[in-house]
Every structure is written in C-alpha cells, then in structure tokens.
C-alpha cells in the first residue's frame, strides 16, 4: 500500500533497498559476533528447521523486546517457547518469505547496518535493553518504507507466536473459545 505513486515498494524493491548492495552484506558478515555469543549459541536447540543458531538468538532478542518483559507471574517468551515455535512456523513458509527473513535478520543485527541507519556502534545482540527498544522504535517509525516493513514482519511473527499459545491468554483475560461439552 502506498499513498503516493512514487513510493511503490514491491517485494523485489524491498529486497534491493534492504540489502543496499550485496557487497555491504558480505562485509557485515565479517563482523565477529559469533565469538562473543559462544555461550548463548550453545543454548540454542540443535534441530532448527528455519533459523541458523545466530538467527535464533537474534529473533529471540527481538521478540523479547517486541512482546515486552513479563511482570511476576506472567509468561516469558521462553515459557511460551516463542523462538522455537517461530522456527517451526517459518520452516513451513514459502521459500521467498524464508529468503527475505534470513536477510532481514542479518540486516537487523549487523553492526554495519546499525551504524548505517542509526549511527550505533553495536550489533543488535550486543545492545543494552533500552538501546534495543530505541533501535526497534527507529525501525517502526523510519522514514524508509522498507524498515517499517521489516518492523511489521518482526512484530507479526513475534506476537503471533506468543498470543496463539494458550499460556499467554490468562494474562490478558481471554478465556478460550466456547466449545462443545464433549470436546473440552
């Protein structure tokens, strides 16, 4: 959707703009974050269907900020298994959607892009919690359409994986659907 004819963002254009050149992407991959994440990576499930271990951590970190931290007694994203559920969900997505999300996770996290877009000197995973929120807000309200699109993609996956799970319902007062007695 666009309100002005000169702001059409097709999926192809989205990719093109997002990457701002494959060269940049390849450079960003040289940023050594794996070494810093060795401990966390060892906690990532081994049998992933969609995420790479690094992407799993990126998504989990993004989802935690998008869903919001729980108050005492409320479920966390780990309680619900948001990242694992997202992995299963996305493993069945169309291949083009999968390609785009792989690229999105790279762009969201890479220090090169956090600097390019926001003059931050850290990858997303290495940011403080307030910086992460500020960074996500920048994506949500960016003047660049592709970043708002990226935010929407992350918000959809994160919230869908959390609120389709019945562990999240009590907190918001949802009682589940009325069902025939014999099927409760």
């Amino acid at each position: 959707m666009n309100v002005l004819p000169d702001r059409v963002t097709t999926r192809r254009k989205f990719l093109k703009e997002t990457l701002t050149g494959v060269v940049f992407l390849s450079v960003s991959k040289l940023v050594p974050s794996e070494a810093l994440l060795a401990g966390e990576l060892s906690q990532v499930p081994k049998d992933l269907g969609f995420f790479s271990p690094r992407e799993y951590l990126i998504f989990e970190a993004v989802a935690e900020r998008i869903i919001g931290l729980p108050s005492p007694g409320q479920p966390s994203i780990k309680d619900v298994g948001v990242a694992s559920r997202a992995d299963q969900f996305l493993a069945g997505a169309d291949s083009e959607v999968q390609d785009q999300l792989h690229q999105l996770f790279t762009v969201v996290n890479a220090a090169f892009f956090t600097f390019l877009f926001d003059f931050r000197f850290s990858s997303f995973l290495n940011m403080s919690a307030p910086d992460k929120d500020s960074y996500i807000l920048d994506w949500m309200t960016s003047k660049f359409g592709f970043r708002r699109t990226g935010f929407q993609a992350l918000k959809r996956v994160s919230l869908s994986m959390f609120y389709t799970d019945n562990h999240s319902w009590k907190e918001i007062g949802y009682e589940g659907m009325f069902m025939p007695e014999e099927r409760k």
């Binding site: 998008i66 919001g68 931290l69 996500i136 869908s160 609120y163």
Partner: peptide, 21 residues
C-alpha cells in the same frame, strides 16, 4: 481474537503488553 488484537494494537514492548491487559 487474542492474536488479532495483539497485531492490531499499536506499538510494541511493555506499553503494548500493558495495552493488551
């Protein structure tokens, strides 16, 4: 429905979670 509501409500994070209450 809960997910529809969550996706429709503005913003993200703690403020969004609070809104869902």
């Amino acid at each position: 429905y809960p997910t529809l509501a969550a996706l429709a409500l503005p913003g993200f994070g703690s403020a969004h979670r609070e809104l869902l209450h």
